[in-house]
């Protein structure tokens, strides 16, 4: 009896050990497979290529520059190509997509921002209120774990763990599918349907004509807004504040702005005030355009963050006029500025 109990106990222990080893092997295989083998060149490679192209361009600009940092609202609704000649400053549209974590976005751009630069941030509401957990597992987590360990190492340890576990079954299914599509020279329909990126990092070619099939959907899109409290307490907000403080300490001027939105469903006044105070209370500026960046639904391409190309130009001209007075122009850094412009607030004194 005692002997059989001992045998049963040994069998249980052996089974437990075997299960633990199996689980550890599963983790190891998972890390190896997603860290070095599986990739999604079409879905995430597209984003990575855009980020890298924009940063490469930024690295080539030696003089003070204007950088627009946001989600896809940045490139779709703003056009550096139009803003640049008005503000007399090289302009670069650095926004990618709303799902890209702000900590990742800032970590990448901090290496390319220098004293005298101006950063304009028309962040989307979702970027202020995004939770820490959601930020940790965005597409950038997979991009970093697979391709950019250097940036991952600069972020908090919870991002390392989330980076490791950023890959789900969908990723495992789609990685080989995308590899096959790429090997078969799959014609990516995105440029034909939504447009492409120009040398300034702007999204271009999203014409009103291409937007026509989207109009019925855009007209029916529901719109929910974040509350002031959500903006104030948002994890994204804390990341923006940290970035502003870093920028202030490094002689970089930050200017906040409102994202574009439907004129028929604007964000509540309290939300807008909360958004503004994130910048103003931390030594940055904030631009509110006369139209509050609100446009009729027919001006949008496929969502409230994406103006079509015609209205992107309209919005950019309006903004450029305002940015002209808020930027840190090289000339205005001199006390006898011949243009007679008012000196911007928080202007670096070097």
């Amino acid at each position: 009896m005692a002997k059989s109990r001992v045998i049963a106990s040994q069998a249980r222990q052996s089974s437990s050990r075997w299960l633990i080893r199996g689980c550890l092997a599963s983790l190891l295989l998972y890390a190896l497979a997603f860290g070095s083998l599986f990739d999604r060149p079409l879905a995430f490679g597209f984003l990575r290529a855009q980020i890298d192209a924009k940063l490469e361009h930024a690295a080539m600009i030696q003089e003070p520059k204007l950088v627009i940092l946001a989600g896809s609202n940045g490139p779709y609704s703003h056009r550096c190509e139009i803003i640049e000649p008005v503000v007399h400053m090289p302009c670069l549209n650095g926004g990618i997509a709303v799902g890209i974590g702000l900590d990742y976005l800032f970590a990448r751009w901090q290496l390319y921002l220098h004293r005298g630069d101006v950063v304009y941030m028309p962040m989307e509401e979702a970027q202020y209120v995004r939770t820490r957990a959601a930020t940790a597992v965005g597409p950038d987590a997979a991009i970093m774990f697979r391709h950019d360990w250097r940036t991952l190492a600069t972020l908090s340890p919870d991002r390392w763990l989330a980076g490791l576990f950023a890959f789900d079954l969908r990723f495992a299914l789609m990685a080989p599918t995308e590899a096959v599509l790429l090997a078969a020279h799959f014609h990516d329909p995105r440029p034909d349907v939504t447009g492409t990126m120009n040398a300034w990092g702007d999204h271009v070619g999203h014409t009103a004509e291409l937007a026509m099939p989207n109009q019925a959907t855009v007209a029916a899109l529901p719109r929910a807004h974040a509350s002031a409290e959500q903006v104030r307490a948002g994890y994204g907000t804390s990341l923006i504040i940290s970035f502003i403080r870093w920028a202030n300490a490094n002689g970089i001027r930050v200017i906040g702005g409102l994202p574009t939105e439907f004129a028929d469903h604007p964000m509540p006044g309290e939300t807008q005030e909360a958004m503004q105070s994130v910048y103003l209370a931390n030594g940055a500026d904030f631009i509110v355009l006369p139209n509050f960046s609100r446009y009729p639904r027919s001006a949008f391409f496929d969502s409230a963050e994406h103006l079509n190309e015609t209205w992107q130009a309209v919005h950019s001209r309006l903004l450029a006029e305002q940015l002209r007075w808020h930027r840190v122009p090289i000339a205005a850094a001199h006390p006898d500025d011949p243009t007679g412009r008012p000196a911007p607030r928080n202007m670096p004194t070097d």
């Binding site: 199996g22 092997a25 599963s26 295989l29 597992v137 576990f165 079954l169």
Partner: peptide, 17 residues
Amino acid sequence: GWTLSAGFAFTVQALFF
């Protein structure tokens, strides 16, 4: 046992991330 332990990493991913 094999099935459960092979999918352990995906289980952790789904539960926590």
